[in-house]
Simulated scan of single mutants.
Amino acid sequence: MTGTPHRRGADRTESIMRTTLELGQEIGYARLSIEAVAARAGASKQTIYRRWSSKGALLLDSLLSMNGPRLDYPDTGDIVADLRTQIHAAVDLLARPPFAPLFKALIGEAQHDPQVAAALNERFITPQADKTVTRLKTARDQGQLSPAFDLDLAMAILSGPLYFQLLITQEQLTHEYVDRILDALFAGMGPRPHTPTSHARPPSPSVPPA
Rank of each mutant, 00 (worst) to 15 (best):
T2K: 14
P5K: 02
P5V: 01
H6C: 01
R7D: 01
R7H: 02
G9T: 01
G9F: 02
G9N: 12
A10D: 05
A10C: 01
R12H: 03
R12S: 07
E14P: 00
E14H: 14
S15Q: 14
I16P: 05
M17K: 14
R18E: 15
R18F: 11
T20Y: 09
E22L: 12
G24S: 12
Q25G: 15
E26P: 00
E26L: 08
I27W: 04
I27R: 14
I27F: 06
G28W: 12
A30Q: 14
R31K: 15
L32Q: 07
S33D: 01
S33R: 02
S33Q: 01
I34T: 12
V37S: 08
V37T: 09
A41P: 00
A43Q: 01
S44A: 08
K45G: 02
T47N: 03
Y49F: 11
R50E: 04
R51E: 13
R51A: 13
S54H: 07
G56R: 01
A57H: 14
L58N: 10
L59A: 06
L60K: 13
L60S: 13
D61C: 10
L63D: 06
L64N: 07
L64P: 01
S65T: 08
M66W: 05
N67T: 13
N67V: 05
P69Y: 11
D72A: 05
Y73P: 00
D75K: 03
D75H: 09
T76N: 10
T76P: 05
T76C: 06
G77I: 08
A81H: 09
T85L: 02
Q86Y: 00
I87D: 00
H88Y: 05
A89Q: 07
A90Q: 11
D92T: 02
A95C: 06
P97M: 10
P98Q: 11
P98K: 12
P98D: 09
P98W: 13
F99M: 12
L102W: 11
K104R: 11
L106V: 04
Q111N: 10
D113W: 10
D113K: 07
A117C: 08
A117G: 05
A119Y: 03
A119P: 01
L120K: 10
R123F: 07
R123W: 06
P127Y: 01
D130H: 13
D130Q: 15
D130S: 08
K131G: 03
K131S: 05
K131P: 00
V133I: 15
T134R: 15
R135G: 00
K137N: 14
K137A: 14
T138H: 12
D141V: 01
L145P: 00
S146K: 09
P147Y: 11
A148F: 02
F149G: 03
D150Q: 08
L153N: 13
A154S: 04
A156L: 14
L158C: 06
G160P: 03
P161Q: 06
Y163D: 03
Q165M: 08
I168C: 08
T169L: 11
E171P: 00
E171I: 00
E176S: 10
L182T: 02
L182Q: 04
A184N: 12
A184C: 09
L185H: 11
F186M: 08
G188C: 06
M189V: 01
R192S: 10
P196A: 02
S198A: 09
S198T: 13
R201G: 01
S204H: 15
S204K: 15
S204F: 04
P205V: 02
S206V: 12
V207L: 11
P209R: 15
A210P: 12
